[in-house]
Simulated scan of single mutants.
Amino acid sequence: MTATELAVSGVTLTAGAHRLVRDVSLTAGAGEVVGLVGPNGSGKSSLLRAVYRVLRPASGEVRVDGADAWALPVRQVARTVAAVVQEAGADFDLTVREVVAMGRTPHKRLLDGDTAEDARLIEWALDAVDAVELAGRPFDQLSGGERQRVLIARALAQQPSLLVLDEPTNHLDIRHQLDVLGALRRLPATVLVALHDLNLAAYYCDRLYVLDGGVITASGPPVEVLTPGLLAEVYGVASEVTVHPRTGAPQVTFLPSEVVRPV
């Protein structure tokens, strides 16, 4: 697994007459963890779909290591980019190990069996998301959180140079949120991830892009982006932002309206 550079330049996405994102540009350097944050409906998922080639831009371009991602052969894209989406998709009639092994498919020829290296990577991916004990269980009998961990493991087994994740901590308990994001942080790959939890984004991401109404409203290191003023503007809520004494990362506390309202 190696890291790649991602450059999104002036991308506009539409659905019929509706504009999903407008003139969005962002970069993710090799090995960076870059976060997308913003309220529901701000365009995060749509933008990610353009990166992993599900939603073609109406204008602008997505480049991976300088090459137009939408012009690359399908097999090359499958070896380079892995995606974990919010929807778990169909119920696979497979065991967990078999689902994770699907991540090795882009690296095989038709009818090739698993090699010792495939087996090693499958075990490593399962271990990275604390799913080794699930390996023999039917995927369609798992809880939502267990499925999410397995799908992340499948993406890890793919050994991509660019990993794109849409709310990967949804359905996960606190321990597994930390385990999964910690594993992503340690990968020798580039990661573009949409997150709702701003404190997780502040700790695990090198840089953040804030989407609101389909446009980028702020970008930079978390300490520069996550300010009470920006959070009030984008999320419409009052907050306090402090520096965590142990991690040194910004820590956001949202304030209920009855606390903010003058007595």
Rank of each mutant, 00 (worst) to 15 (best):
D112R: 10
T4G: 12
Q177M: 02
L187H: 02
N40V: 01
V74D: 10
D206S: 08
T217H: 11
L110I: 12
I174M: 12
A78I: 06
A202F: 01
D91T: 11
L94E: 02
S45F: 06
T169F: 05
V164S: 06
E61W: 07
A249G: 10
R246N: 11
R75I: 12
A125R: 07
V77C: 04
A58E: 15
L36S: 05
V252A: 11
P250L: 09
T169N: 08
V37A: 06
A58G: 11
A82T: 08
L13I: 02
L134K: 01
V225I: 02
V259N: 08
P221W: 12
W124S: 11
R63D: 03
V74F: 04
E5P: 01
A232E: 14
G144E: 09
Q148V: 14
V21M: 03
S42V: 00
A201F: 02
E224I: 10
Q159K: 12
V34L: 03
L72H: 01
V193I: 03
T247R: 06
A238G: 03
M1I: 14
P138H: 06
L165N: 03
S9D: 15
G38L: 10
I152S: 11
S239K: 08
T27H: 14
P222F: 02
E61S: 15
V164E: 08
V223D: 14
V8M: 04
P57W: 14
R154E: 05
R207W: 08
V99K: 04
L6Q: 06
T14I: 15
L172D: 01
P188R: 00
T217I: 10
S143Q: 07
Q141L: 14
S257M: 13
G213L: 05
E117K: 11
E98M: 09
V84E: 13
Q76V: 13
A128H: 00
P222A: 07
A131E: 04
V215P: 00
V215H: 10
V34N: 00
L20A: 09
T14N: 12
G182F: 06
Q251P: 01
Q141C: 13
T190R: 09
E87D: 15
S257V: 14
L192F: 04
T115L: 09
D206G: 06
T95E: 06
A238K: 10
T253F: 15
